[in-house]
Design a protein around this nucleic acid. Structure first.
Ligand SMILES: [Mn+2]
Ligand SMILES: [Mn+2]
Ligand SMILES: [Zn+2]
Ligand SMILES: [Zn+2]
Lengths: 132, 132
DNA sequence: AAGTAGTTTAGAATGATTTTAAAGTGAAAA
DNA sequence: TTTTCACTTTAAAATCATTCTAAACTACTT
């Protein structure tokens, strides 16, 4: 399935700009990135795109479930092409994130979800500090 | 132990401004708040403080372990007076956070911490959506 | 009382993200 | 195929949380 089909299937009109981004992000390789990271990759692929469009596309991709945004109090939003439930180590000094696969963490006994709500995902974050 | 002693014990010089904040935050009641929330409380307590000082104090308090900052991709930093390890439900629509006590979640089999690092805290976030 | 490092502050600066509004474009209808 | 129009892109301005600057202040030590 090519990028155009992936966009159509996600309900997004396949514009030139979204195709460029889909070609970079939806290659099956898991990556964590910021809007600026992505714009740099777009530039080095010989294309260019306004930062407003990068943000517009990331929001659309996120709302469609093509990517997700990681819950971190970093001052720059970090996105993730791994859309399966999984978790992260966070190096608080550098901001670096490392994936933890879902089966590496055994979450027994989740608390009762408040009345009228349902769980829309569980994220475990393990904050790391350098020894000594 | 009064606010002055708590500040001294934490290694902070007890200034007028830090006392005002300590009186509000360190009363044993758990709360989640932003810098602006806190400034509003300061104002309604009959005091006033520049927003720079609010941020300065919050950073000092956080670095001393008197409060902590919650890992959330909210665009405004959220602080927590509950400094014990615990977890949260996040209502993604409203940004509201609800505490989950540490013993309500059973985290068996944590993954191996990367070489040269140690775990500086585990945060579980359960994202909630409204039913229907 | 004097000295000094640490603190507060108003206001400016920063930096990520969003908004604006005008021009462009994809897809459906005619 | 041409027309149409809602959706998209863009540069530039705006927004907004947070940090910085530099001058005035203050808690503690001597
Ligand atoms: Mn922030
Ligand atoms: Mn943000
Ligand atoms: Zn990941
Ligand atoms: Zn809490």
């Amino acid at each position: 399935m090519d990028s155009k089909d992936k966009l159509r299937k996600a309900g997004l009109r396949p514009t030139k700009q979204r195709m460029i981004i889909a070609n970079i992000l939806l290659d099956g390789v898991n990556r964590h990135f910021t809007a600026e990271n992505l714009q740099d990759e777009i530039n080095s692929s010989g294309n260019s795109m306004s930062i407003a469009t990068v943000y517009n596309c990331l929001k659309k991709f996120r709302n469609c479930g093509l990517i997700k945004q990681i819950e971190t109090s970093n001052d720059t939003a970090i996105f993730d092409t791994n859309t399966h439930q999984h978790h992260h180590f966070l190096n608080e000094e550098t901001g670096e994130l490392i994936d933890i696969e879902d089966d590496e963490i055994n979450l027994k006994s989740l608390p009762k979800i408040p009345q009228g709500y349902y769980s829309n995902g569980v994220e475990v974050l393990i904050k790391l500090k350098k020894q000594d």
